[in-house]
């Protein structure tokens, strides 16, 4: 518990966490404020926010807040102190992991919950959806669900996507020596699948290219849908057969793989 507290005290000194949270809150409020007191737009605004703005904010919050977690000691030249401490590197890893995943869980849900609470407060409760709103949510194939259930699924995949994104940031952080390198590397890796998808769509829509290249680009497009941004924008769900547990299981497997690699990178750092 003492080491966890020590990690927490270190973490709350990171200036970028405050700036990231402040900026995310400002963008969230800015998106939410124009729809205050308009119950007819409540659900549309909520679903659009979760699809358009929240993924970017969630991934940025992970990259900004967690990139220092595993390389802070290397950058601050206090790694030998940590290595010679009573509980050692192994215990520090689990405490850092607990702290990182808690931060990821909170920040993944924060933007969506903030918009939801803001809208609900301004409307005096959760308003009923107007007629013909079914299908506005990007969760595919489940239009028969209630609006709140659909939003709940969206939030679940925001959480899973945020945790997977955090896993990648932790991995890059354990590999990097400096927080800035970790932040840049993590931001690049997180943005790459989305950038490749946009590039593939632009390329396919602009040029009548040969069949082989079309198949290749289509595969790249589909593969990138399984990336971190794909989870947050529910591209992952479009490929499934409708079974809910399969995408969730994939997300958990991805997270487990990322954390296992982070552990290996941390052990490697300890052996140096």
């Amino acid at each position: 518990m003492d080491t966890l507290r020590a990690e927490w005290k270190k973490c709350i000194l990171f200036r970028e966490v405050y700036v990231a949270l402040g900026l995310a809150a400002a963008i969230t409020l800015w998106q939410g404020l124009p729809n205050i007191g308009r119950p007819e737009d409540f659900w549309i605004n909520l679903y659009n926010f979760n699809f358009n703005v929240a993924p970017v904010l969630i991934l940025f919050l992970q990259a900004a807040g967690l990139s220092r977690l595993f390389c802070g000691e290397a950058a601050g030249r206090t790694a030998p102190l940590l290595r010679t401490s009573r509980l050692g590197l192994s215990r520090a890893f689990w405490d850092k992991l607990a702290l990182g995943l808690s931060y990821a869980a909170v920040t993944s849900l924060l933007p969506g919950l903030l918009v939801f609470c803001l809208g609900a407060l301004s409307c005096g409760g959760v308003p009923a959806a107007p007629e013909g709103i079914g299908g506005i949510s990007r969760i595919p194939g489940w239009e028969g669900m209630g609006e709140l259930t659909q939003w709940g699924w969206e939030m679940l995949f925001s959480l899973l996507g945020g945790l997977c994104g955090a896993g990648l940031v932790l991995l890059v952080s354990a590999l990097a020596r400096r927080p800035v390198s970790a932040m840049m590397g993590a931001a690049l890796c997180l943005a790459l699948p989305a950038a490749l998808r946009v590039g593939a769509v632009l390329f396919l829509s602009r040029f009548p290219i040969s069949d082989g290249l079309v198949i290749l680009l289509d595969r790249v497009y589909r593969l990138c849908g399984w990336g971190w941004s794909g989870i947050l924008t529910y591209e992952l769900l479009e490929k499934g057969s409708g079974a809910l547990w399969m995408p969730a299981l994939y997300c958990l497997s991805l997270l487990a793989a990322e954390l296992a690699l982070t552990w290996l990178a941390w052990k490697r750092r300890g052996r140096r």
Binding site: I27, V56, P179
Partner: peptide, 9 residues
């Protein structure tokens, strides 16, 4: 990191 984050977002 703070400047990087602010400018990029």
């Amino acid at each position: 990191p703070t400047a990087f984050f602010l400018v990029s977002v």
